[in-house]
Amino acid sequence: MRSTAGSTEPTAAAPRRPEPAGKVQRFTGAERLVHRATGWLMLVCLVTAACLYLGPVAQLVGRRYLMITVHEWSGILLPLPSLLGLFSPAFRADLRRLNRFAPYDRQWLRAARRRLKSPTARPAGKFNAGQKIYAGWIAGAVVVMMATGLLMWFTGWLPFISRTSAIFVHDCLAWGITFVLIAHMRKAYQDPEARLGMRTGHVRREWVMRNHSKWPGEEK
């Protein structure tokens, strides 16, 4: 490292903050912020959608124009946290992990179909096969939701696609996202250590070896 003016020795690099004893860093602050911001935007989208399409909720809340505006802009902003997260090397490394299916991921899926819960039957890297499938599905669903939402908003963009068709796809996929998110949150609440990793960034080393045994040797 280059020395500062007036010094004769190189400036020492800033020391890294030591990890807590017996723990491993699972997520950096940037990754946790992306997850939190995306989660809040998704929640706003779903709540405002309920205020628009579910009669009893719409009557209770009212303010339809406000709900429409908040729904539209929260949907447009939904990809923004992930796009900003691309500035983080750790986030980009995790995207590469999520986009890579290893042989042990297929083993994990076979064990999941047979309802085998033994850690040896379900080997996984930093992310298991279920998490990889969920990440890919939700990313694709967000793109389709944005596209159909924009077609509903600007009806003249693609004249050969009717607004009715866009509404049908948008509404069906919204229900699919709702059920998948409920399942995602249910899985998270069944694993307190996973929630701790997203909340604090660190998890116990024993948990890693039990549930993500392939992670230490996994390439970024």
Rank of each mutant, 00 (worst) to 15 (best):
G130R: 00
R205T: 09
G149I: 00
F154S: 13
R17S: 07
F87W: 11
G149A: 03
H170T: 08
A141W: 10
H35Q: 06
R92A: 10
G85F: 00
R36W: 14
Y134H: 07
P18L: 12
V44Q: 02
D94I: 03
A21W: 10
H170I: 07
R115Q: 14
G149L: 01
R100T: 15
F160T: 07
M145W: 08
A121T: 04
W108T: 00
F87Q: 13
G6L: 02
P79V: 07
W137P: 02
R195S: 09
K214F: 06
A124S: 04
V57T: 07
A30S: 11
I138P: 01
R115V: 15
I76G: 05
R16F: 14
R36E: 06
I76V: 14
L54A: 14
R64V: 15
A111T: 05
L98P: 02
A139Q: 06
V70I: 15
L95M: 12
A102S: 09
V143W: 11
I138H: 04
L151S: 00
Y53W: 11
E206T: 11
A194C: 06
V203D: 00
H184Q: 02
Q25G: 08
L86K: 09
G130D: 03
M198Y: 03
G85I: 01
H71L: 04
W157V: 15
A121N: 06
V169K: 01
A49S: 10
Q131A: 07
A14S: 11
D171N: 14
A111C: 09
K220Y: 08
G156N: 14
T48W: 00
